Computed example of a mutant assay.
Amino acid sequence: MQRQLIQRYLLVVVVALTLSSCFTEPDYPDTPSIEFRGIFKYTLPAGQGIGKSKRDSVVITIGFKDGDGNLGTTVNSPTYKADSARYAQNGNWGNYQIRTFRFINNRYVEYTDQVNANLLFPDLTAGKPKGAIEGSLDFNQLFPYGTVIQMYPTKFQIKIRDRSLNESNVVETDTISLPFAR
């Protein structure tokens, strides 16, 4: 009886060790890296009233990996102002940069939009232990149809940075057609 108990105990220990050894924490660099995963456009119908014109909603999805998990900032945290000031002093952009390029006269020309000047995404590890992380980020932007618009083939370039100001690689989206006011 005691021998069977010891065998069962050893079996449980061996299974537990085997299962725990199956997961190894990823070994990513501390500088974030990103990859383009997709761009989706859908048209929202016009509603009643001012500012409710027909508009295209664009969602851009990127994948990310980061070795120390220090991506994002929390708006309601004591470090928010310090993070924002540090971002402003180092390139004057937040932790998410998106650049818009329209195809005009047979070449892509950057279109600057103040809405994209200082983009921030939330702390991705708030309340969790430090360590490597990976996942995806979705960015949504609206392009309204005004009274006089022109459709342009448009693409975006994106990069992110962590709280240590390590910048990721730059990824470029596919091209889609979007409305811009003339």
Rank of each mutant, 00 (worst) to 15 (best):
T154E: 06
E167Y: 00
Q48G: 01
P129S: 05
T24G: 00
G94P: 06
S77G: 12
V171K: 01
T125K: 07
A132T: 09
V75C: 05
T112Q: 14
I158V: 12
S164M: 03
D162H: 01
P32M: 01
I133G: 08
L11R: 13
S77H: 04
F156C: 04
V115P: 02
K130D: 10
F36E: 12
G67W: 08
N166T: 00
Y80R: 05
I6W: 04
M151H: 10
N76F: 11
L71S: 05
G94L: 05
D138P: 05
R3C: 10
A117V: 09
L137I: 15
D162E: 01
D138T: 08
Y87R: 05
A16K: 01
L119A: 06
T79A: 09
Q141C: 05
G131L: 10
A85N: 06
A16F: 11
Q150L: 10
L119D: 08
D30N: 13
N106L: 10
D30K: 09
P29N: 14
G51W: 00
A82I: 12
F103I: 10
E25T: 04
S53A: 03
T73V: 12
M1Y: 13
K130F: 02
F64G: 06
S57H: 09
P153N: 14
P26V: 00
I98N: 06
F40W: 12
Y42P: 01
G49D: 03
V170C: 03
R8T: 12
Q157G: 02
F139T: 11
G127W: 07
L71Y: 10
L17G: 11
F23W: 04
Q4V: 08
Y80V: 04
G38R: 01
T61N: 14
Q157H: 09
E167A: 05
P26N: 00
I149M: 11
T125S: 12
N140R: 15
E167Q: 08
V12D: 14
G94E: 04
L5H: 12
Q114H: 12
D162R: 01
G38K: 00
Q48R: 07
Q157Y: 08
L178S: 09
L119Y: 03
V59Y: 11
S20H: 00
D68M: 07
L142E: 11
F23V: 02
P179A: 01
K130H: 07
R8E: 14
G72T: 12
T79L: 09
A16L: 13
W93D: 12
N106I: 06
Q7E: 14
A46N: 02
K159F: 03
D123H: 10
N76C: 05
E167R: 03
F103A: 12
T154R: 07
R55L: 07
G63H: 07
G63S: 14
G94T: 07
L71V: 08
Y152A: 04
A46H: 02
A82F: 02
P122R: 06
K159D: 10
Q114V: 12
Y111T: 15
V13P: 00
P153C: 04
N70H: 09
P45T: 02
P179E: 06
F103V: 09
L71F: 09
S164H: 05
S20K: 01
D83A: 04
N116A: 11
T173N: 02
K128C: 02
K65F: 10
Y87W: 07
T79E: 09
V115N: 13
F121M: 05
P179H: 03
A132I: 04
